[in-house]
Design a protein around this nucleic acid. Structure first.
Length: 587
RNA sequence: CGGGGCGUAGCGCAGUCCGGUUAGCGCACCGCGUUUGGGACGCGGGGGUCGGAGGUUCGAAUCCUCUCGCCCCGACCA
């Protein structure tokens, strides 16, 4: 590609609304342009890169038996009504009517279509297992897009769907993906880790998220340096401290005027936060029959811990869960700041108590009366709960559930996920097959996704310096940046033709620009190899060769230029391939 | 949805508080000339519904009302 013919340009200044470095670089270097909030155009350079990323994905999917298909981005709503998601999903899903007033949806994902295909095309165990995948646009009207391609509303995703006759088959395909995803990220030069994640309301049995660890990430992960345990904070387990033992003392009401926080309470009564119970009010939406019902949820954790609302939502099987409003709390007969599970009048309130609270004796709790707390509350004697389970959030320093070492906290961007779905969608849509015994069974599904735009930006976030991007060769839009300075045109043109003929992808800077502009643009765009041809090098019958990631430049004779490039390209490719290793699966 | 910020040329910004020439600067762009190994220089140019609508005023980028868009934090996230 000659730069004089390329669509788009580099910018000296990044747009003011780009904050994340990778976002700034992608805009400055001319890879992406914004069309609206969370909506981006991929310019020629980015299109070439995503093509490469996607081809790596195709390669790895095909290697585990995947067959590429292409499913529509507009779906009849009927399909989504059949699985009930038409009703369950909020305004994150965009809906519209076609000219005959039929409800339609823009696809957020493709489980429904896969299950529909399955019920139509799979009747026998002989047609299982199968693995299908596609690369297609998804539209999710996310309430808050951010950071360039990291979180967008429209994006391209590789999603694959496994279809199996039994759990063992699902497990096999799940494990195949587990490895394939590592291969994909490694081939793209992105360090990623797999962490256990929430299966939530999807009703699956296991899920992993692939995380690129970076401070710009919006997921919080807990990581154990001792044993390697890693999990999304939403589900992270930890070993709780031993509950202090002792005899249950008599319940006692004390005046605590103006004391409404745990910290103030602990100071006021001269106890530790661990000797208190923290009450958190949430409002949960539950599906009862055909209707959505809201109920107040009263969650109790020990005062020195935070509530983990994902754990809580899973424990109570609520559809949605949000902090309760002041009025809702009052309506239930409780007083914010002085709430207590003891003597809660309203029977409709769902009380959930953390297991550590159940085992603790003589905790300080609210008295359900403004200005008063209760000393020595004890589970069982003073109050009961509908559910007792782990609902506390793991924190930095919490003890690892496996080995007891303190957990660390890291931020991460989710670049992929794998999910054992089970039969939720196939059951809903009637995707059955007959097994060997002629018995009807639901097809068992798994789903597995990787967003290509997000992957692209994470790679930039990982591979850049203060001058610009430094692409891994496998996904660079071109392999070589060929810079012709004054007097170098003729030799550069010849080299351009020769390299291209040998399958090397070349971006040829044939513009009439000063050397500084050309070098800076080359650094910004970030191709892994650079060849410069100028009067200066030609005096020695040579060209200059440089790796983007290194400062060193080498002068090589013209006749060796082609070979030098080919060797360097091979070297960089081999380096990436060497990272492909079987990964452990401790699940 | 809650809180905060910003909309002036392709990009970065000044001007807005305190209304008053023809709306300005840098980069980018076009022409000519000089320059040419790390974002050159001179001269000459082109490009603006000041996000939009309504209002106040002799007069609005500037004041008022409404509205749209974008960014950041939080909530949310199959």
């Amino acid at each position: 590609m000659k730069m004089t013919q390329m669509f788009g340009q580099t910018l000296r200044d990044a747009p003011a609304d780009a904050e994340v470095v990778s976002h700034q670089l992608l805009v400055r270097a001319g890879y992406i342009r914004q069309l609206g909030a969370g909506i981006y155009t991929l310019m020629p350079l980015a299109k070439r890169t995503t093509d490469k990323l996607e081809n790596v994905m195709r390669d790895e999917m095909n290697a585990i038996g995947g067959q590429e298909i292409f499913m529509p981005v507009v779906h009849p709503a009927d399909l989504w009504k059949e699985t009930n998601r038409w009703y369950e999903i909020g305004d994150e899903m965009s809906r519209f009517q076609d000219k005959n007033d039929r409800d339609m949806v823009l696809a957020m994902t493709h489980e429904e279509v896969v299950a529909d295909l399955t019920r139509k095309d799979v009747q026998s165990y002989r047609q299982l297992p199968r693995l299908i995948y596609h690369l297609q646009t998804k539209w999710r009207d996310d309430p808050r897009p951010r950071a360039g391609l990291i979180r967008v509303r429209e994006f391209t995703m590789k999603d694959s769907y496994s279809l199996d006759a039994d759990e063992a088959g699902l497990d096999k395909q799940y494990r195949a993906h587990y490895q394939a995803y590592f291969n994909i990220f490694r081939r793209c030069g992105l360090p990623a880790v797999a962490v256990l994640s929430d299966v939530g309301m999807m009703g699956g049995s296991m899920a992993h998220e692939y995380m690129y660890l970076t401070p710009i990430g919006e997921d919080t992960l807990l990581i154990c340096d001792g044993c390697g345990y890693m999990a999304n904070r939403q589900i992270a387990k930890f070993r709780k401290p031993e509950a202090a033992g002792g005899e249950a003392a008599a319940l006692e009401k004390v005046a605590t005027p103006g004391v409404t926080t745990i910290q103030a309470l602990a100071e006021f009564l001269n106890v530790t936060a661990a000797q208190t119970a923290k009450a958190v009010f949430m409002t949960g939406t539950f599906r009862e029959g055909d209707a959505d019902v809201q109920r107040l949820v009263f969650a109790v954790v020990r005062g020195d811990m935070e509530l983990n609302d994902t754990k809580l939502a899973n424990a109570i099987k609520s559809k949605e869960l949000r902090p309760a409003h002041e009025e809702e709390i009052r309506a239930a007969g409780a007083v914010a700041g002085y709430a207590s599970p003891v003597g809660l009048k309203n029977q409709d309130v769902l009380v959930v108590v953390d297991d550590l609270v159940k085992d603790s004796v003589n905790l300080v709790a609210g008295a359900n009366e403004a200005g008063f707390h209760l000393l020595n509350t004890n589970y069982g004697r003073d109050y009961e709960a509908a559910i007792v389970t782990d609902i506390a959030a793991a924190e930095e320093g919490s003890a690892c559930a496996n080995c007891g070492q303190p957990l660390g906290v890291r931020r991460g961007v989710e670049v992929g996920n794998i999910f054992k779905l089970g039969t939720k969608y196939t059951k809903a849509l009637g995707a059955h097959f007959l097994d060997k015994d002629g018995k009807e069974q639901d097809v068992i599904m798994g789903s597995y996704g990787i967003g290509s735009g997000r992957l692209l930006q994470c790679i930039v976030e990982e591979h850049h310096d203060d001058k610009g991007i430094i692409w891994p060769i496998s996904v660079a839009p071109y392999h070589v940046h060929l810079v012709a300075l004054r007097g170098g045109d003729e030799v550069a043109s010849k080299l351009y033709a020769d390299l291209t003929a040998r399958g090397v992808e070349v971006l040829y800077d044939d513009r009439e620009e000063s050397p500084g502009v050309k070098f800076n643009d080359a650094d910004l765009i970030g191709l892994p190899l650079r060849v410069t041809v100028s009067e200066r090098t030609l005096k020695e019958n040579a060209v200059e060769f440089k790796l983007r990631r290194e400062a060193d430049r080498a002068v090589v004779p013209i006749e060796q230029a082609l070979e030098t490039v080919l060797q360097a390209k091979q070297m960089l490719e081999d380096e990436l391939l060497a990272t492909l290793q079987p990964v452990e699966m401790d699940f």
